[in-house]
């Protein structure tokens, strides 16, 4: 895997799918012009985030014209984009589609819906029930939508599945402006620490794509970043403003990190499975 990726830190309009599609097509055209292999958008990039009752109105069933357009554009550049999915079961999911070679290759449905603080995901969405990898022509990827990344078990499953990179689309508002030892938004600092920790622990590239803009005063912080398998920042975008940045997810960096510190080799997933079974069994009693 040597994948040239473009992060599109956009400002979607709430519930205006056609305007958002245009924004996507423009960034995809930019990605093609740059000759990158993959362009990634934030969480719910096609719909906007705090949809509430707009969730049902913004939902796209399989084969919807908007999804078909992204399929069509994915023949020479792979695309990751967020949308409200109307599942075949009629339920609505906060989903992230990975489009490649003219088709919707994989959909990840957000598992860990965030329903605390300023968020109310679980009121509006059904949770996903699996973590499956995307086997792209450019590498093996695990998608974690925003809050999914806060659960180390999700990243662990992708680690065990031998992913090359964790793709983390997000719609994270910036909060916390008081003075502390480290400057910056408190929420951004937390995200950055987690990305660096997961990259180190799971020796994967972390591609975090956040959005910008304000939805009723919830000010999305941007600050999209790529962290390498050593936990070092390889690329990043400014806070608060739209922008794009490209970088290469190199297979060699991953290989070297895993040789120097062979965490995956020494990991004991069967032990984890056995102990989890034991602990959960005891908890049930």
């Amino acid at each position: 895997m040597n994948c040239r990726v473009l992060l599109a830190q956009i400002e979607p309009t709430l519930g205006n799918l056609s305007a958002n599609l245009e924004m996507h097509l423009a960034a995809i055209a930019d990605a093609r012009a740059r000759g990158v292999q993959m362009v990634l958008f934030p969480e719910l990039s096609l719909s906007g985030y705090f949809l509430r009752d707009q969730v049902a109105e913004a939902a796209l069933p399989a084969g919807h014209a908007i999804l078909s357009q992204l399929c069509e554009r994915s023949r020479d550049v792979s695309i990751g984009a967020g949308f409200v999915e109307r599942g075949e079961d009629g339920r609505l999911y906060n989903s992230y589609g990975f489009f490649e070679d003219g088709r919707l290759l994989e959909v990840h449905r957000k598992v860990h819906l965030v329903t605390y603080g300023m968020f109310d995901d679980a009121r509006d969405f059904a949770p996903g029930d699996r973590f499956r990898c995307v086997q792209s022509r450019h590498g093996r990827f695990g998608v974690l939508i925003c809050e999914d990344m806060w659960h180390v078990s999700a990243a662990y499953l992708h680690f065990i599945s031998n992913v090359d990179a964790l793709l983390v689309p997000s719609a994270s508002p910036g909060r916390g402006v008081t003075q502390t030892e480290e400057p910056g938004l408190h929420s951004v600092r937390t995200w950055n620490r987690m990305q660096e920790a997961l990259a180190l622990l799971f020796q994967s590239w972390i591609v975090y794509v956040n959005r910008v803009g304000s939805e009723d005063g919830m000010i999305f912080s941007g600050g999209s970043r790529v962290v390498d398998p050593f936990g070092r920042v390889a690329a990043e975008l400014a806070l608060l403003d739209p922008g794009v940045v490209e970088t290469t997810l190199s297979a060699d960096a991953t290989r070297r990190a895993r040789v120097m510190t062979p965490l995956r080799r020494d990991e004991k997933p069967w032990l984890v499975q056995r102990e989890l079974t034991r602990i959960l069994g005891q908890l049930e009693e």
Binding site: G174, Q179, P183, L185, G217, I219, L240
Partner: peptide, 18 residues
Amino acid sequence: DIQCELVEQLLVRFLRSE
């Protein structure tokens, strides 16, 4: 105590965007 420069940046964007 707040980080004034950061707060100014956030609020200017908030006013423009909203």
